[in-house]
C-alpha cells in the first residue's frame, strides 16, 4: 500500500531544544488524521516539516512518496496547506486569489470553473467577486479549500482549522473535509478541538512535548473518553 503522507524518524531540534522527537506516521488516501496537543507540543513544527518550510534534523518526511527536504518545490504539487489564519491578498477578490493559487499550482481554469470550485467549497456566490480584505475567517478558509480542490491535492495540511469558527461554520467545515476525504484526499490537521477531531477523523494522535504519546482509531472511544485520556496525558 502506497502512503501519501509519511514520516520516518522525523525529528527537529533547535540547539538543545527538541521540538519534535522522532516521529513515525503514515497516512493512506482518504484518511483524516487529527493531531491533538497543547500549544508548543510540536504540532506546527510537524506541519512545517511536511511543508518543507523547515528542514528536519534527522529522519525524513514524504509526500506522495517523495522526500520533502530534497524536493521542496515538487511536493507542493500534491499538497495543499491551510494555515490557522488563511491569509489571502486583501486587495484581490476571492476569485482572483483562487486564480492566482491555481495558476501557481500549474492549473488553468476559466472564470466559470473557478466560480464552481469556490461554490463547491461553500463560498456564497455574492462574495466571490469581493475583495478578500473583508472576508471572515470561515470565508477565507473556503477559498483555501477551493485552492486544494483546484490543484487536486492528494494531501491537505491544516493548522487549527476550527479555532475561531462559529459552530455552524465549524460544522460546514467538517462536512467539507469529509467530502474531500471521500474523494481520496488524505487530511492531516493539528487541532485543539477534541470533539470535532473525534467526529471527523479516522485516526487521532496525542502529542506532548514533541512526542506522539498515543495513537488511536476514532471509533475506539467516544468524545468523553477521549477527553479524559487527553487530560490524563497532560496532567502527568
Amino acid at each position: 500500500m502506497e502512503f501519501v503522507l509519511e514520516a520516518r524518524g522525523l525529528c527537529k531540534s533547535y540547539l538543545e531544544n527538541r521540538a519534535l522527537k522522532p516521529l513515525n506516521l503514515s497516512l493512506q488516501q482518504g484518511e483524516i488524521f487529527s493531531l491533538l496537543g497543547p500549544n508548543g507540543a510540536g504540532k506546527s513544527t510537524t506541519i512545517n516539516l511536511f511543508l518543507g518550510f523547515i528542514k528536519p534534523s534527522s529522519g525524513a518526511a514524504y509526500i506522495n512518496g517523495i522526500e520533502v527536504a530534497r524536493n521542496p518545490v515538487e511536493i507542493k504539487r500534491y499538497l495543499a496547506y491551510i494555515p490557522e489564519q488563511v491569509v489571502l491578498y486583501p486587495n484581490l477578490t476571492g476569485l482572483e486569489n483562487l486564480s492566482l493559487l491555481s495558476c501557481l499550482a500549474g492549473y488553468r481554469y476559466n472564470k466559470q470553473e473557478l466560480r464552481g470550485l469556490l461554490m463547491k467549497a461553500g463560498l456564497q456566490s455574492e462574495a466571490i467577486d469581493r475583495y478578500t480584505g473583508g472576508y471572515s475567517k470561515g470565508m477565507r478558509q473556503k477559498v483555501g479549500i477551493a485552492g486544494a480542490l483546484a490543484k487536486k491535492a492528494k494531501v491537505l495540511l491544516l493548522d487549527e482549522p476550527t479555532s475561531g469558527l462559529d459552530p455552524k461554520a465549524s460544522n460546514e467545515f467538517s462536512v467539507l473535509l469529509q467530502q474531500l476525504s471521500e474523494e481520496g484526499t488524505a487530511v492531516f490537521m493539528a487541532t485543539h478541538d477534541i470533539f470535532r477531531a473525534r467526529e471527523v477523523s479516522t485516526r487521532i494522535g496525542i502529542m506532548k512535548a514533541g512526542e506522539l504519546v498515543h495513537e488511536l482509531r476514532s471509533g475506539d472511544m467516544d468524545a468523553n473518553e477521549l477527553e479524559k485520556l487527553y487530560l490524563n496525558y497532560m496532567h502527568d
Partner: peptide, 9 residues
C-alpha cells in the same frame, strides 16, 4: 505561506 505552499520557490 499561501504562496510557498504552491510549487513555487
Amino acid at each position: 505561506g499561501s504562496i510557498l505552499s504552491q510549487p513555487v520557490s
